[in-house]
């Protein structure tokens, strides 16, 4: 039986500056550990309980809502400069439970559990009746559009051949009939104009990622027109990432070294993140 008074929790306001600091630390943690998809930004703090922690510090038990931005997780753009995905583009929200430790004025994440889900079709069409919805990422038309866009990108450039890392987003546009896709790529040790068998190309040790937007449109001649624009990011030296106590590093780091598209079971751009123990 512990001596002294039983330690209880306190409930500061959700918009209290200290609560917001804890929530921002949580969002930063999400974006550093998302395996694929887009960076998320804080939208609302749903609830907060602050537990004293022995021998020192406090643990913030937080429920927060996030929104998807237009910055891919491999994009080095600071979150503050990323735009929130708008409702008419078919927004995606995140729902997260966090335990964040505050000790010596520093916040660190003890545990995280997040699920993301796209807005409902009904809600999208309320604000924009004709806007296309998100398409399943494993749809054959989506996969074909990505392959065509990537081939066009590689054909247009000199230097490294870029491999597909993941398909991030896709929509079927009705008029003109088109498939709009967004996907991440990475540089390989092959030269783009000399590639015979892309399967034999290897990702560079010093990773160089890129992010592409493509549009494949059926034309009147029965063929298709392909438009693609890619942004290639600066190379990323391989650095070990610090992990919270009890967290597993393996499955949560971005898909570095893998060229396989990362899809959710439903083929939709939903992501989940579960890290560390839930105990306070």
């Amino acid at each position: 039986v512990p001596h002294g008074p039983v330690l209880g929790y306190r409930e500061p306001a959700c918009d209290d500056p200290e609560t917001e600091q804890a929530a921002l630390a949580a969002v930063d943690y999400i974006n550093r550990h998302l395996p694929h998809g887009y960076k998320h930004i804080l939208n609302q703090i749903d609830s907060v309980k602050v537990w004293p922690r022995r021998p020192t510090g406090e643990v913030f038990d937080l429920e927060i809502d996030t929104l998807e931005t237009t910055c891919h997780v491999l994009d080095p753009t600071p979150l503050a400069n990323c735009s929130v995905r708008q409702l008419k583009e078919h927004a995606v929200e995140g729902d997260c439970d966090f335990n964040v430790l505050k000790q010596d004025g520093q916040f660190s994440v003890l545990s995280a559990k997040c699920d993301s889900s796209p807005d409902s079709a009904e809600d999208v069409h309320k604000v924009c009746p004709d806007c296309p919805l998100l398409a399943p990422l494993n749809d054959s038309r989506v996969v074909h559009a990505v392959e065509a866009a990537l081939a066009t990108f590689n054909a247009q450039k000199s230097g490294s051949y870029f491999q597909l890392v993941e398909i991030s987003r896709a929509q079927f546009v009705p008029l003109p009939a088109s498939v709009s896709v967004e996907f991440a790529v990475a540089a390989t040790d092959c030269v783009a104009k000399e590639v015979v068998d892309p399967a034999k190309c290897n990702l560079l040790a010093e990773k160089q990622y890129g992010f592409c937007k493509g549009m494949v449109t059926e034309n009147v001649a029965g063929g298709e027109d392909v438009a693609v624009t890619c942004t290639v990011f600066q190379t990323q030296p391989v650095l070990p990432q610090p992990q919270p106590d009890g967290a597993e590093a393996g499955p949560l780091t971005p898909a570095q070294g893998s060229a396989a598209p990362a899809l959710s079971p439903a083929g939709l751009p939903a992501a989940s993140l579960v890290v560390g123990p839930r105990a306070v």
């Binding site: 306001a13 959700c14 918009d15 939208n43 749903d46 907060v48 809600d123």
Partner: peptide, 29 residues
């Protein structure tokens, strides 16, 4: 004798403090 001090009544409804959930920064979906 004990006199009741004059306390002015607040004008209009007293604002309700809702500590949670916090403000929506962008939009709700």
């Amino acid at each position: 004798k004990v006199a009741q001090p004059s306390v002015p009544a607040p004008e209009g409804p007293v604002p309700v403090v809702r500590p949670c959930p916090g403000r929506i920064r962008y939009f709700n979906i």
